[in-house]
Structure formats: structure tokens, C-alpha cells
Design a protein around this nucleic acid. Structure first.
Lengths: 349, 349
DNA sequence: CAGACTGCGGAATGCGTTTTCCCGGCGCGC
DNA sequence: GCGCGCCGGGAAAACGCATTCCGCAGTCTG
């Protein structure tokens, strides 16, 4: 116990045993009811002593004595992003219900950082590791990450991937492709024919899946989006703004609606359109994906496909805590929400 | 080691020592460079063995052996709330920079839950506990909470309160009163004279502080807000909506601008006004507080006072990690942002 | 009334590390 | 050539707790 005169230090089980006038063994038994019985009088004396001394068991010591912890580890890309924080809310809710305390790390959308984090997290010996990851490709780090998780699992840990199907672990995915597919059909049904697509770099899988689903939905109806109208940009609000600015600058040229692979991008795009003198919902339709909270608060309200993010977090924990055998994969479904940003568009012919 | 056949269990320092053909002592010394030297050849053999076996030190064991952990505990009201998640982002960023891993718990805006959480968190023996709390009054639990934190501190822990000045611990506060004060002056300068006030129940201190500051700002200019125009409601978007609905229903009756103590309430209010046929920014001004991300994305863009939330998280960690003596209290300043939801209002006389 | 059995408290052991303590070997100065 | 300090290695104690094992009394059974 270095660190100078930092006060009396924490009170240990030893202290409460002495205070109660019993052995540490009895104290332990009294405090966390073991199979063995302890005389009620002794038990209450121990509890009184614990309360008096304000004792809290040292979780690390318990962990090492019992051979297992009561923590759940969660790694997210960015806490401040509503996408991740909604998932985190679900995860922590389920964890606390299960009596686990959650340790959270943010990977900052960098696969290398993610790997490093999982490495140190593994030292925690958590009950499970939930990865709500960046979903960015990167063969080398991907393999390393998989190896690290595999080692963790073979030592008895549970791992669950959120929205990341292609690793051999339990997975809860979001139906990105399906949702985008449905959105495409819904927009077509609303009368839209000429589309633009704002997407992130191909390395981010979420974006890819959504684009693929959207295009598939159009193709099935004999529609398509011209190459010159798919613009690649950053996976952020700024990216959406920039893309829309560029598009508006060179002229809409017949485009009736743009699908941005993310609500925040879509909202950025609406902002840019407005700055360019176009009114979203009238001059140009806008649709996003995720249904973040502010999607209903922008004007016009944003058409999007709702992802039950909190639910995703909950199911992830449920999956990780259950003791089923092989890697299970549950997919949570999405629902498209048509709002004022894509009004019905009567076509004359 | 119960739990059935869960695989080989984690690899321990013992294993790598055996693999390298040295004692555990040398293995430990090689892996985390102690004061003692170990022959370079042995050192590299140990490192090789560790890599081969994919060894990770058991953090709990380290904690108990060293007498201190490398974790920081953070308790927030609600992860999904952008207010808290922004603070959390700052805290985790600083923590990871300091090599700490953060465990997060959500108190769900309930003081009792908050107390319970801090109790169990204390068992973790974290380096520090940061409380970004509900700021809800409640004498009994408040005292208990204070006692719990005091016990933790006297055992050598550091505690920092975020936006909660009145407990005898390090504190980083947000200048709620000052910001609201400045907002009041700014609105007055923009020509507004008749105000409404949407606030949360008096038990939530943040709301109280902001109201007080706002009213003080008005008073200084000889202005006030009529009692019938201050409406108490919930601290949420729904609360803001409800308040605005009620106000619109019974008639604006001359009110020119409403100040909602929170952006999310303000946004809810804008939505309700619009539903009632009033256009925010033209028929009625709206101002909020916090400058959450979506404040710029609603139309009209929301006048608000910006709170550097991420910064708050960063400073909180900085304060907690520094080793100054007494309770320090740093206040981060706010800045009012006039936007389109409160356009200039030329007055005729 | 002897023996087996039950209930309960204490000592001892173990968990995975770090750290202290001791010990042997080596180089150095005298 | 011999003591002495220094360097590096291993054995063992310590950390805070759970748990197993033992022994002691008391109680029940035959």
C-alpha cells in the first residue's frame, strides 16, 4: 500500500470479522450466504459490523477467489454518436438487470484501436465482450481481432458481435440490406423514379449493405440510379452536407430524391440543400436510415428506416448470457417510416 | 473453477514462466519492467512465450497485488441522452489517454439507484468516481450518497462531481445561471419583451439554476415573466411538447418568446407549436439550453446557450487525476448562440 | 450410556500477481 | 588470493477474499 498517507485504506473483511468478534470465514459466510449456516446471532453481528464500518467487498479479490468476475465489457465506436449510445443504453440496461457492471471502451472507428482495446479488455476477464464495432474492413487487424476473441472464448468467455456477421461468434445484426430494400420499394411506390445515393467509403460495411439493398430493391422494379448520382463521402453530418452541396452545385438534373445511408448524413444533406436555396421535401426528397431521435424534429420530418437500437443492445446481452451451443445469429428487423421529407409524388403518366 | 468444461481456462503467468523456463518472479519482472533487471536473453524468451501463449495479465490479480486498480468509474443519468453521452465521451477520452479503463453505470435519473450504484462501484476500488448525476434533490439519499463518497475518498479514492456543486468534493460545474442570464439579456437586446418559461419540477436543480439566471437577467432590465406564463413540465421532449400544446391551446396572449430550460424540451415545444398552426421563429420565438447537435438541424435553427459538454468531461478527469489538496471547483463557461428561432424583433417604440 | 451424526467456528489453502528476501556467482580492489 | 559489493534468479510472502477441511461441542439413536 504505497502512495503515501492516503488515509486508512479500505476496510477489509478481516476488519469486520474482528469488529464482530468472529473469524473471517464466518464473516464471509454471513455476508454472502453460503451453503453453510451461521448462527443468526453471529450473522446479525457481522452485518452490523459491516454496516458500521461501511464495508464493501473488494470485487477484484472476489473475482480472483471465485475464479470469475461480474462485469460485462462493451466496445463501441463512439459514445457521443446516437447510434452507439442507443445500443449502449440497451446493453447497460440488460447488464444491470443481470447484476453485471459494464466497462465501456470507445474504439473511435479505428480497427487498430479496437484490437488494442479488446486486448486489454481481455485482461479484465469479463463474463462477456460485446463489440458494436466500426464495421470497417481491414484484413490484417481483422484476423488479429478474431484471434484475440477466439482466445478469449476458448478460455470460457462469451463474445457477441453487434451488426458484424462475418466473424464466427454470436451475432445480432441489423437488417441493413432488407431495410434499404423496403425503403427503395416504398419510395418507388410513392412515385419517385430518379434517385441519388450518398454513401460512405466502400470500406465501411454498413454503408455497403444499405446501398446494396437499396439498389436491389430498385432493380427489381426495373429502376436504377445513375453512376453520376452516387456520391461517396464521409460517414458524418459534414459528409452529408458536402455531398449535397456538390450535387446542388452541379445541378439536380432531374434527381427527385436522395437516399443517404445514415440519418445524420441525410440531415446534413437537408441543411446543404436549404443553403443552396432548395427546400427539402418540395424541390428534393430526402431519406435516411436509423431513425435517430432528431429525425422527427427536423423539418420536414425525415423519411427513414427505423432500427431498434436499444433492442439490439438488449438482445445482444440476452444472446451472450444464454448458454446455447454454437454461434447463433439473430437479425433484428427494420421498418421504413415515410415522412414529410418524401411526400407523395403524383406522376402524370 | 466450476462451470463445467469451459475450455482450458485462461493462461496464467505461471504458464508463460514454465514455457520460458524461468520462475514466475522473473516472468513478472520481464513483462512489466520492474526496478530489478532481468537478463536480456531471459526477457526476450519470456516475451516470446507470452506472445505464443497469447497471455494477458489478470487485471484483478494485478489490482489486488499492487493494491490499486487502473479503472475509472463514471455514473451518468442516461447514456442515450446526448447531454450525458457527450460528457461520457469526454470522460472516456481522457481516461483512455491516462491508461485507465472506464466502467460506466447509468442511474436512470433516480437518486436511490444512483446511491446503490455508487455502493457497488466502490467495491471496484476504482482510481476515481465521476458522478454526472441526476441533480435531483432528496435529502435522505443525498446524505447517504455523500457518506458513501466520503468513505470512498477517505480510503484514498478521488471523486469528482459534474454539475453538482453542493457536495464537498471536487466539482466541475456548468455555468447554468450565468448562461441563462446572458440569454435573457440577448433576447431582450433582440427586442423581446414578453416571455414564457418552460421548466422542470423544482426538484431538478439544473432547471432551477437556469430559471433563476434567466429571471435575474430580465429583472436587471426591469422585465419579468408573468406567473401564468411559467409552466412546469417534464424534463423531456414530451414535456416540452406538452407545455407548448397547453400554452398554444389557451392562447399565446402576447407571449413573444419561450425559453425552455433544455434543448430537447425546446425542440418538443417547436413541434407542438407547429402542430398548433404556429410557425416557430415567426409567430413565436423559441430558445433552449445545451446546444445539442440537433439544435442546428431543426428549422428554424434553435437559439440556445452552448455548453462544452465534452470539455466538461475532460476537465472532470483532469481534476480527478491531478493531486491538488482541497476540494477544487472549476466552472466551465457557456456561450449564447442566437439563431433563427429568435429573429430580431424590431419594436416600434 | 456409547457411538454416530449434526451444526458451527476456525485454521488452512488457493486464486494470479507483485514484491521482498535470500542466495549464488562474478568482478573488483586490496 | 580474498573479502566485498553487485547483479540476477528463485523461493516465498503478501494482497483480500472464498472455500475446504478439521475439530469441537452438542444432540440424537440404539
Amino acid at each position: 500500500m504505497p502512495d503515501g498517507a492516503e488515509g486508512p485504506g479500505a476496510v477489509t473483511l478481516h476488519d469486520v470479522a474482528r469488529e464482530a468478534g468472529v473469524s473471517v470465514a464466518t464473516a464471509s459466510r454471513a455476508l454472502n450466504g453460503s451453503a453453510r449456516n451461521v448462527r443468526t446471532e453471529n450473522a446479525s453481528r457481522v452485518r452490523a459490523a459491516a454496516a458500521k464500518l461501511n464495508y464493501r467487498p473488494h470485487l477484484s479479490a472476489q473475482a480472483i477467489a471465485r475464479g470469475q468476475t461480474r462485469t460485462a465489457a462493451l466496445v463501441v465506436g463512439d459514445v457521443a454518436d446516437p447510434y452507439f449510445s442507443a445500443i449502449a443504453a440497451g446493453v447497460t440496461e440488460a447488464a444491470e438487470a443481470a447484476g453485471l457492471i459494464v466497462t465501456m471502451a470507445v474504439a473511435g472507428r479505428s480497427p487498430e484501436r479496437e484490437l488494442e482495446i479488446i486486448r486489454t479488455l481481455r485482461g479484465q476477464r469479463p463474463r462477456l465482450i460485446a463489440v458494436a464495432g466500426s464495421r470497417i474492413d481491414g484484413a490484417a487487424t481483422r484476423a488479429a481481432l478474431s484471434g484475440e476473441l477466439e482466445a478469449y472464448r476458448s478460455a470460457g468467455g462469451r463474445v457477441v458481435m453487434i451488426s458484424q456477421r462475418d466473424l464466427p461468434f454470436d451475432t445480432v445484426t441489423i437488417d441493413n440490406a432488407g431495410g434499404a430494400y423496403q425503403l427503395a420499394r416504398a419510395l418507388a411506390a410513392a412515385g419517385y423514379r430518379r434517385f441519388a445515393l450518398f454513401r460512405a467509403p466502400v470500406t465501411v460495411r454498413t454503408s455497403r449493405d444499405r446501398c446494396a439493398g437499396f439498389l436491389a430493391g430498385l432493380r427489381e422494379l426495373g429502376l436504377a440510379v445513375e453512376d453520376r448520382f452516387v456520391v461517396e463521402t464521409e460517414f458524418t453530418r459534414a459528409g452529408g452536407y458536402e455531398a449535397a452541396r456538390r450535387l446542388a452545385e452541379r445541378g439536380l438534373d432531374g434527381v427527385e430524391v436522395v437516399f443517404a445511408v445514415t440519418d445524420v448524413m441525410a440531415i446534413g444533406a437537408m441543411s446543404a440543400f436549404r443553403d443552396a436555396g432548395l427546400v427539402p421535401g418540395r424541390d428534393i426528397g430526402v431519406a435516411g436510415f436509423d431513425d435517430i431521435d432528431s429525425a422527427v424534429d427536423v423539418t420536414p420530418a425525415l423519411t427513414t428506416v427505423a432500427v431498434p437500437l436499444r433492442e439490439v443492445g438488449l438482445t445482444a446481452m440476452r444472446v451472450a448470457l444464454s448458454d446455447d451451443p454454437g454461434p447463433v445469429s439473430v437479425q433484428t428487423s427494420t421498418t421504413v417510416l415515410l415522412r414529410e421529407s418524401t411526400p407523395l409524388r403524383p406522376r402524370t403518366r
